[in-house]
């Protein structure tokens, strides 16, 4: 196979020197590998974009599901069943046997790291996984 050789003098130093030593095929190879790496980076990122809803009771995971799949989940705590709704990429508490319903009033969460808790019923709901876009904030003061 005929390989077009650039003006390979074998002389020069630094970046220019390195570039001078490369053939067009070398450069194509480097470009190809670069594109592959960039592609794999994006693919892995996209894979991580499957954010998940994790529900824990007393520190133990009792539910783990994707945030993109609409569903209702009933989780039992010491006070009774808490109904959690996952819809449109957000999760919230629909009904709870706790007295003050703070968990319902907290509303929806949908950002990586966000938490929703029903303290009386010992339940912690969190969103995990790499988000599609970076969060506007890291923590919530409420």
């Amino acid at each position: 196979m005929a390989v077009a050789q650039s003006s390979d003098t074998g002389k020069g130093s630094g970046f220019k020197g390195v570039m001078n030593r490369l053939t067009w095929l070398d450069r194509l190879l480097v470009l190809g590998v670069g594109l592959l790496v960039a592609g794999s980076f994006t693919l892995v990122k996209a894979g991580g974009a499957g954010q998940r809803v994790v529900v824990e009771r007393d520190g133990k995971v009792v539910f783990n599901g994707v945030l993109t799949e609409a569903r209702r989940v009933t989780v039992n705590g010491p006070l009774g069943p808490t109904v959690i709704a996952i819809k449109d990429g957000s999760v919230c508490v629909l009904s709870s046997p706790c007295p003050a319903k703070v968990c319902i009033r907290t509303g929806q969460i949908n950002r990586q790291g966000e938490l929703l808790a029903c303290v009386p019923n010992h339940l912690v709901i969190r969103v995990e996984g790499t988000p599609d876009v970076e969060n506007d904030y890291d923590l919530i003061s409420r």
Partner: peptide, 25 residues
């Protein structure tokens, strides 16, 4: 929601969302 921060968040400030009192979420 009561927060105390130690240092920054790996080289950038922590970004604290202040919850809206009338718009849940």
């Amino acid at each position: 929601g009561d927060l105390r921060l130690l240092g920054d968040r790996k080289g950038r400030p922590w970004r604290i969302g202040l919850v809206h009192p009338r718009k849940a979420g």
